[in-house]
Design a protein around this nucleic acid. Structure first.
Lengths: 261, 261
DNA sequence: GCAAAAGTGTTGCAGCTACACCCATGG
DNA sequence: CCATGGGTGTAGCTGCAACACTTTTGC
């Protein structure tokens, strides 16, 4: 929604296009500067930041909706996207007055107001998806109601709107637990990378350091990555080997994963 | 809904009480006769069986709704209940005609019909919860529209309505992957049990046999169970020791679980 | 005494952790 | 030649899998 007209249309006609009472919230992970970051946005006249999100069209699959919303926000398609939980317990989700109030502050920018019977004033459940994106390829779409966006370190997330902090916590837990089953890094790193790079990524995600030698052995033994016959020049140091992801093996890991015995 | 009057009231006034477009489906696992079973129900004039489910009240938390629905169906409270996925992709969920048609067959028993604008004819997303219940304590409530119910072995689930087979598959995967983190067995076994009993349960859930000695070592080492200073008489055989669950340890396992490194 | 179930211990292997020294490169 | 980062191997430990014989009990 890039213009006041589109916002007004959304307010008055959105209920025909979208399902009420249900939204999708996206935890978009990007990796930059040795840090795992999350994309946050801030709506007009709102003190707290939010997760990017959207609504599901009436005849649209849930997964399709998540992909659409994400590509609307980041201009990226074909992302790694994973549903992790559906949130419907937080008291802030049930507080009509607060919800209506917040919406009205935001929509004031387009000179519209909603009353308590409006579909956007109602209680909303939210399906959480997390995405892994290449930080450098993201170009956040400037939306009319979004006055600011920022990539924040996962360890320094401010207090967010509604239950969005809880959503991020759960997303991180899920991401961590799936790190070795899915080829998570595939979407956060360039096609070819050095061992140090992927190790730094894993350290950022899991929040702890690893031993270089053991890390290499584990990743190669699991078949997650493959060493290439190629090195990269990196200034006044020895040239490190490049690696890439072994995607065939990843799908096998995925099938076997989860069940321990 | 135990009477035609309640059904009629639900049809005509349910939209005031419940959120539209959203349901909860429950995969209720019970354990009996060395088999892991699932509770299925069959609605009036429906060929296929279904999972028990229900709707979320407008001001009710999602988890609270799941508990309410489950206790309405089984008369049990305080169950182990776990959300595992939200389903909104299956084409059968988007096929209005089929949905309306099926509903009308069912509701014909109460002599009511719904048109395509009725809230129950609309596309519905479903939040999946799985529950673990003590098979013996369940007394399935006879509902007016439910003409039959059955406990079926997880390995012999018939073809179900909509995407309910997919829901069960995902529930089983989740249950299996959480087996050693959560004290899953706690809800499927009596308070005290023999090693053979819990081993048979784990074999039923994971679908493969284990070695008695290794199984005991693992369960005790993980701190999931504790051997008691008590035996049980079991006819013409040696009296086995009893065990119970070590719930304190379970919560620790849960925190550590998931993240591998 | 016999049939059925339960109790129990050891060995080998695989995979993880901990750990330190040398090499390559550019300035 | 030096500072920085990269490459590499081994030893010990833990945890898991494989495996068989003896004990208890009621009939």
């Amino acid at each position: 929604m890039n213009s006041p007209e589109e916002v007004v249309d959304f307010i008055y006609n959105g209920h025909q296009r979208f399902l009420p009472h249900l939204s999708i919230d996206c935890v978009i992970f990007g990796y930059h500067d040795q840090q795992l970051k999350i994309l946050l946005i801030r709506y007009h006249d709102q003190e707290h930041w939010s997760l990017p999100g959207g609504y599901v069209e009436r005849q649209e699959g849930l997964t399709a909706a998540a992909h659409r919303i994400l590509s609307e926000k980041t201009q990226l398609t074909n992302l790694y996207l994973q549903q992790f939980y559906t949130f419907g317990d937080s008291p802030t989700r049930l507080n009509r007055i607060e919800i209506q109030d917040n919406h009205n502050k935001v929509y004031a920018k387009a000179n519209v107001a909603i009353d308590e019977e409006h579909w956007l004033s109602k209680r909303t459940l939210s399906v959480g998806y997390y995405a892994l994106v290449d930080y450098h390829e993201v170009s956040v779409t400037p939306e009319f109601l979004v006055v600011d966006y920022a990539w924040v370190d996962v360890n320094a997330v401010p207090s967010l709107q509604y239950d969005h902090n809880e959503i991020i916590d759960k997303a991180l837990l899920t991401l961590r637990s799936q790190l070795y089953q899915q080829s998570v890094g595939y979407n956060l790193l360039p096609e070819k990378f050095t061992l140090s790079e992927i190790q730094a990524l894993y350290e950022a995600i899991l929040g702890k350091p690893f031993d270089r030698r053991n890390f290499r052995k584990k990743m190669v033994a699991l078949g997650v990555i493959r060493q290439l016959d190629e090195r990269r020049k990196i200034g006044p140091h020895r040239s490190p080997y490049l690696y890439d992801f072994n995607l065939e093996n990843a799908s096998k890991l995925q099938e076997a994963g989860g069940v321990i015995f």
